[in-house]
Design a protein around this nucleic acid. Sequence first.
DNA 1: CGGCCCTTTGACAGGATTCAAAACCCGTGG
DNA 2: CCACGGGTTTTGAATCCTGTCAAAGGGCCG
Lengths: 250, 250
Amino acid sequence: MNKLHNMTAPVHLSQLKTACSSCSLQELCLPFGLSDAELEQLDNLVQRAQPKLRGEYLYRAGASFQSLYAIRTGFFKTQVMHEDGREQVTGFHMMGEIIGMDAISTDHHTCDAIALEDSEVCEIPFGRLEQLSRDIPSLQRHLHKIMSREIVRDHGIMLLLGSMKAEERLATFLLNLSQRFASRGYSPNGFHLRMTREEIGSFLGLKLETVSRAFSKFQKEGIISVQNKSIEIKDITALKLTMGQQECRT
Amino acid sequence: MNKLHNMTAPVHLSQLKTACSSCSLQELCLPFGLSDAELEQLDNLVQRAQPKLRGEYLYRAGASFQSLYAIRTGFFKTQVMHEDGREQVTGFHMMGEIIGMDAISTDHHTCDAIALEDSEVCEIPFGRLEQLSRDIPSLQRHLHKIMSREIVRDHGIMLLLGSMKAEERLATFLLNLSQRFASRGYSPNGFHLRMTREEIGSFLGLKLETVSRAFSKFQKEGIISVQNKSIEIKDITALKLTMGQQECRT
DNA sequence: CGGCCCTTTGACAGGATTCAAAACCCGTGG
DNA sequence: CCACGGGTTTTGAATCCTGTCAAAGGGCCG
């Protein structure tokens, strides 16, 4: 089991399996032992999809917390900011993922969420979600799993940031993206990066030049093909090898 | 508001405010709008304190998940492990904190928890906690806050690992410890480290030699006094300055 | 008291950052 | 349709921080 593959991923909306017909994502509407009445309640909970244009903030650090957000389409980044101005991208989030859970602790958002492309989100009022999850144990359990998954994901990133070299980080990042695209029915081998080198660098704890160099090196080695933001993975085995490349100390 | 101060901290048991008389921590037994009957239910939920000797595992990655653990006394570290053997300390946990929430997502623990000194923990069967939290909304909200707080903490560590230099990391770490000791009624200026330089290094994404050098440098500058595992903070202002020392780029 | 682990310190190597410049892409507007 | 301009990306060279290797010192426990 590779924890790193969970790195940026999961917290998939399908885990909530909310009857999100207002999101018109059929796959998410699969019941998980819910009665029709319960499904309808879930359905009513989730607000109609809201559009967000590229560059728009979904929420800002400090804003008061009302809702979680399920990403229906598009791509977001979340970032925390240090008082001295440094900022750290804490995640890239795609279709089906739920963001905003950091805000529960203080009733205020602790990070910014910004659309990296034109996107749509479904708002999930948290108070009502809590209320409903009191009546529906399986929903309650799902909510807990989703939050827990976020914790596990963060631990994977800590491992990456704390103990990997630049190329290992980038390889891990690419494989994670690949897997997440694949699980959504897109090609795992070719995809389009929505974020800049600088944003990738911030997420991976590297400078943009280092990210660029690593891309170039992978391409020179024939592991991937890079054309601006388009990535093609040509040798996934080599990429996985790069990811884990580090002599095991006894 | 300094997010970093939450870095390794919180998820304080007092947030759960469980009627943890079996933990005999009076401060934690303060009701938060609970009836006597509810308090008794909480009380029954939490198992009698279990002792753990230094070096003992509280749980291991892969073990099936049953319970969260509230640390009654002592000190634990949690660590995740990469398949190639690399490991990363994800946190140091002290009295009053709750650990094990990463396991909810998969019903299996995803990290090891190891006692760094002789300790006592209270086991909280998670299924029953969920059950009870369905009946007691304020308990439910508390549980969510505690999990969310863990997420926020992890984001702070990601910021540290992703954008701070060695000395900034160590300064942040020391200030975090200081604050956590203070909030428990201990001196914020002098305390005893329970972990080795290597464990600090793993947590901070540094090698043990780098940690040692940073300690030495702080001591030479008169910011702290180090004597093995005993730390005395002599100039907390300078320490805070060190933490935030990085030119703001426009 | 001895052995083991932890810690400190030095010298050196290496990887990542920094600074700089040029090329490139893309959206905008002429 | 093409030219322009700003942001993004690439690449090079030099620097700096951290890691690596090594050795010695120190503390703790049996």
